[in-house]
């Protein structure tokens, strides 16, 4: 077989990428050893003292851990629910628009926030939510007292979830729009013949046709339960809202890289990776079993 002669070329093509992944992905994985050490950066991995599971027992003792695990799971669960509903509703509404140019313009505009960074959006949002910002001017005009939104534990999680869905709903709707375009027009024609109104068509044709996509996306999002959005929260939070907005990733950054407790922070990060890994494997197994979905 002549394919055999090509094997070495295939390996050669893959070599640079695989080599870089080993250096920057696999080698750091070995670095999780420091989760079991009292790591000092001056002494390195070989010179630091091994302390077994001490970092982990410490993690289960302190109150911080419960707070950050709860905040992470709560924020990402709220985001998950919002991400299932808002893009779906938007896609269905947009699909009902008959004028093609309007449809295209709306799509172009709502995708824009997805491509802007959280650094930029956070500075815009915190400006708009500041005491004499545009939102508080509206609040005052309506006769209420101005609110320090980003300093309030009552408001912070809602602002995180709200601004995230504002940024992503348009882009997330792409997959639903594609699913909507794939619905067989005969179904609508038949429904029309039977005298179904537009609302009835929505309930009996559109929604059931979208259900497999919704279920698939819901399943796959389970794997992200511990990713509450580092970039976003890091750029919007401050010490006043740690109790409602501090998540695992921001905590690991502060404790690890700012306070230089490398071993302990790596242990917390490792815990997150393990739980995340289990959730991803679980969700993909479910997706494979019930939706016949495979990543590769």
């Amino acid at each position: 077989m002549r394919f055999r002669a090509y094997y070495k070329h295939y390996h050669l093509m893959l070599l640079p990428g695989i080599a870089l992944m080993i250096v920057f992905h696999v080698v750091p994985m070995l670095g999780i050893a420091i989760a079991f050490q009292d790591f000092k950066i001056g002494r390195g991995v070989w010179g630091s003292q091994w302390i077994g599971f001490e970092n982990f027992t410490y993690m289960f003792q302190i109150h911080d851990s419960a707070v950050i695990f709860y905040n992470t799971a709560f924020i990402s669960l709220m985001k998950m629910i919002a991400h299932l509903i808002v893009p779906l509703v938007f896609a269905i509404l947009l699909n009902e628009v008959r004028i093609r140019s309007v449809k295209r313009w709306v799509q172009t505009i709502v995708y824009v926030p997805h491509f802007l960074s959280w650094v930029i959006l956070a500075s815009v949002i915190s400006d708009m939510l500041s005491l004499n910002g545009i939102v508080n001017q509206l609040v005052k005009a309506l006769g209420f007292d101005p609110v320090m939104f980003l300093a309030s534990n009552r408001w912070f999680p809602a602002i995180i979830v709200g601004s995230d869905i504002w940024k992503e709903f348009g882009f997330a709707a792409i997959i639903y729009l594609a699913a909507l375009a794939g619905i067989n027009p005969n179904l609508y024609e038949a429904a029309e013949m039977d005298g179904a109104s537009r609302i009835k068509q929505l309930i009996y044709v559109t929604l059931p046709s979208l259900m497999p996509t919704v279920v698939l996306l819901a399943t796959l999002s389970i794997g992200n339960i511990l990713n509450a959005g580092f970039d976003q929260i890091f750029n919007l939070y401050n010490p006043l809202v740690y109790s409602s907005g501090d998540i695992i990733d921001t905590y690991v950054y502060r404790v690890g890289l700012v306070q230089a407790q490398y071993g302990f922070a790596t242990a917390v990060g490792l815990m997150k990776s393990l739980v995340g890994f289990i959730m991803i494997v679980l969700s993909y197994r479910i997706a494979y079993k019930y939706a016949n979905y495979r990543i590769f």
Partner: peptide, 26 residues
């Protein structure tokens, strides 16, 4: 050998050492 490489990619997608080991590596 495609499937071996695919498993490697899947593994790196699913599991990472986190930010601190990467920081030390760099």
């Amino acid at each position: 050998l495609r499937s071996a490489y695919m498993w490697f990619l899947l593994f790196t997608m699913l599991f990472s050492g986190g930010v601190i080991p990467l920081y030390i590596t760099v």
